Amino acid sequence: TEYKLVVVGAGGVGKSALTIQLIQNHFVDEYDPTIEDSYRKQVVIDGETCLLDILDTAGQEEYSAMRDQYMRTGEGFLCVFAINNTKSFEDIHQYREQIKRVKDSDDVPMVLVGNKCDLAARTVESRQAQDLARSYGIPYIETSAKTRQGVEDAFYTLVREIRQH
């Protein structure tokens, strides 16, 4: 089974770092803004072998026109913010609204991801993020692309959301 996953969120929150940590098991430290990259990885989730087709997208506003296209083809979405960047957390709402509009559905598989949880300088409390996820009816997972904490959990949870859909 193949799953088309799309990673969305503001610029600099760590979308590529999360994806590369999942696929290649290493942490990319330097920031190089993405336009669009796709990665494929075969994994076993709950005993089922599946192929993850992951689209890593641009957070930069100037590429926002490309969003409709990949939102149409994606089956599930990782909505990523950084726990030390309140603005990126506030941006999640717009991504969710755009996904709902493009998919013409209120019920699209999504996982809210709070990345950079290895950093002490948190400005978005776990509780705020949990409340937001609960209001959307989606899971919330904290990750660190640096330490790998929660990385597999985030992507695998999204696959489970798609399966249950």
Results as ranks from 00 to 15, higher is better:
Thr1Trp: 06
Thr1Met: 07
Tyr3Trp: 09
Tyr3Ala: 03
Lys4Asp: 01
Lys4Leu: 07
Leu5Asn: 00
Leu5Trp: 06
Leu5Pro: 01
Val6Cys: 10
Val6Arg: 04
Val6Glu: 04
Val6Asp: 01
Val6Gln: 03
Val6Gly: 05
Val7Arg: 02
Val7Ser: 06
Val7Leu: 10
Gly9Leu: 01
Ala10Trp: 06
Ala10Ile: 06
Gly11Asp: 14
Val13Lys: 10
Val13Trp: 01
Gly14Met: 00
Lys15Met: 00
Ser16Gly: 00
Ser16Pro: 01
Ala17Val: 12
Leu18Ser: 05
Thr19Asn: 13
Thr19Phe: 03
Ile20Gly: 02
Ile23Arg: 10
Ile23Gly: 15
Gln24Cys: 11
Asn25Ala: 03
His26Phe: 10
Val28Gly: 10
Tyr31Arg: 02
Tyr31Val: 07
Pro33Leu: 01
Pro33Trp: 09
Thr34Asn: 03
Glu36Gln: 00
Glu36Thr: 00
Glu36Ala: 03
Tyr39Thr: 00
Tyr39Lys: 06
Tyr39Val: 03
Tyr39Gly: 00
Arg40Met: 01
Lys41Ala: 13
Gln42Arg: 03
Val43Phe: 01
Ile45Gln: 01
Gly47Thr: 06
Gly47Gln: 06
Glu48Cys: 15
Glu48Arg: 05
Glu48Ser: 06
Thr49His: 05
Thr49Pro: 02
Cys50Lys: 04
Cys50Leu: 04
Leu51Arg: 07
Leu52Phe: 13
Leu52Arg: 03
Asp53Gly: 05
Ile54Gly: 01
Ile54His: 02
Leu55Arg: 02
Leu55Ser: 12
Thr57Lys: 07
Thr57Phe: 13
Thr57Cys: 08
Thr57Ala: 08
Ala58Trp: 11
Gly59Trp: 13
Gly59Cys: 13
Gly59Arg: 11
Gly59Leu: 08
Gln60Gly: 15
Glu61Cys: 14
Glu61Leu: 14
Glu61Ala: 11
Glu62Trp: 15
Glu62Asn: 14
Ser64Cys: 11
Ser64Ile: 02
Ser64Lys: 10
Ala65Cys: 11
Met66Lys: 15
Gln69Lys: 04
Gln69Arg: 06
Tyr70Asp: 14
Met71Ile: 09
Arg72Gly: 06
Arg72Ile: 01
Thr73Gly: 10
Thr73Tyr: 01
Thr73His: 11
Thr73Asp: 05
Gly74Cys: 12
Gly74His: 04
Gly74Ile: 14
Gly74Leu: 11
Glu75His: 05
Glu75Ile: 05
Gly76Val: 14
Phe77Ala: 03
Phe77Asn: 01
Cys79Val: 08
Val80His: 04
Phe81Asn: 02
Ile83Val: 03
Ile83Trp: 08
Ile83Lys: 02
Asn84Leu: 05
Asn84Phe: 08
Asn85Trp: 09
Asn85Met: 08
Thr86Phe: 07
Thr86Glu: 12
Thr86Leu: 10
Lys87Leu: 05
Ser88Gly: 07
Asp91Arg: 15
Ile92Ala: 10
His93Lys: 11
His93Phe: 03
Tyr95Asp: 08
Tyr95Cys: 07
Glu97Asn: 09
Gln98His: 08
Gln98Thr: 07
Gln98Phe: 13
Gln98Leu: 11
Gln98Trp: 09
Ile99Asn: 10
Ile99Cys: 07
Ile99Pro: 02
Lys100Gly: 01
Lys100Ala: 10
Arg101Glu: 04
Val102Gly: 03
Val102Ile: 03
Lys103Glu: 01
Lys103Tyr: 05
Lys103Gly: 07
Lys103Val: 04
Asp104Trp: 03
Asp104Gly: 07
Ser105Ala: 03
Ser105Arg: 04
Ser105Phe: 05
Asp106Leu: 05
Asp107Lys: 04
Asp107Met: 06
Pro109Val: 05
Val111Asp: 08
Leu112Tyr: 05
Leu112Ala: 07
Leu112Lys: 12
Val113Cys: 13
Val113Arg: 09
Asn115His: 15
Asn115Trp: 05
Lys116His: 15
Lys116Ile: 15
Asp118Tyr: 02
Leu119Thr: 15
Leu119Ser: 15
Leu119Arg: 13
Ala120Leu: 12
Ala121Val: 13
Arg122Leu: 11
Arg122Asp: 14
Thr123Glu: 12
Thr123Trp: 12
Glu125Cys: 08
Ser126Trp: 11
Arg127Asp: 09
Gln128Met: 03
Gln128Ile: 13
Ala129Ile: 11
Ala129Gln: 10
Gln130Leu: 07
Gln130Phe: 11
Gln130Val: 11
Asp131Asn: 07
Asp131Trp: 06
Asp131Leu: 11
Leu132Met: 12
Ala133Met: 07
Ala133Trp: 12
Arg134Lys: 06
Arg134Phe: 07
Arg134Val: 14
Ser135Glu: 06
Ser135Gly: 10
Tyr136Trp: 15
Tyr136Pro: 09
Tyr136Gly: 10
Tyr136Gln: 11
Gly137Asn: 06
Ile138Phe: 13
Ile138Thr: 04
Ile138Trp: 10
Pro139Arg: 12
Pro139Met: 09
Tyr140Trp: 10
Ile141Met: 13
Glu142His: 11
Glu142Cys: 09
Thr143Ile: 15
Ser144Asn: 15
Ala145Gln: 05
Thr147Leu: 08
Thr147Cys: 14
Arg148Val: 14
Arg148Lys: 10
Gln149Glu: 13
Gln149Tyr: 04
Gln149Val: 14
Gly150Gln: 11
Val151Ser: 14
Glu152Gly: 12
Glu152His: 06
Glu152Pro: 03
Asp153Tyr: 13
Asp153Thr: 14
Asp153Met: 07
Ala154Cys: 13
Ala154Lys: 02
Phe155Gln: 01
Phe155Ala: 10
Tyr156Val: 13
Tyr156Phe: 15
Tyr156Pro: 13
Tyr156Trp: 10
Tyr156Lys: 15
Tyr156Ser: 12
Thr157Ala: 14
Leu158Gly: 06
Leu158Thr: 10
Val159Thr: 09
Arg160Leu: 09
Arg160Asp: 12
Glu161Asn: 10
Glu161Arg: 09
Ile162Arg: 12
Ile162Gln: 06
Ile162Pro: 07
Ile162Leu: 12
Ile162Lys: 01
Arg163Thr: 12
Gln164Ser: 13
Gln164Val: 04
His165Leu: 10
His165Tyr: 12
His165Asp: 14
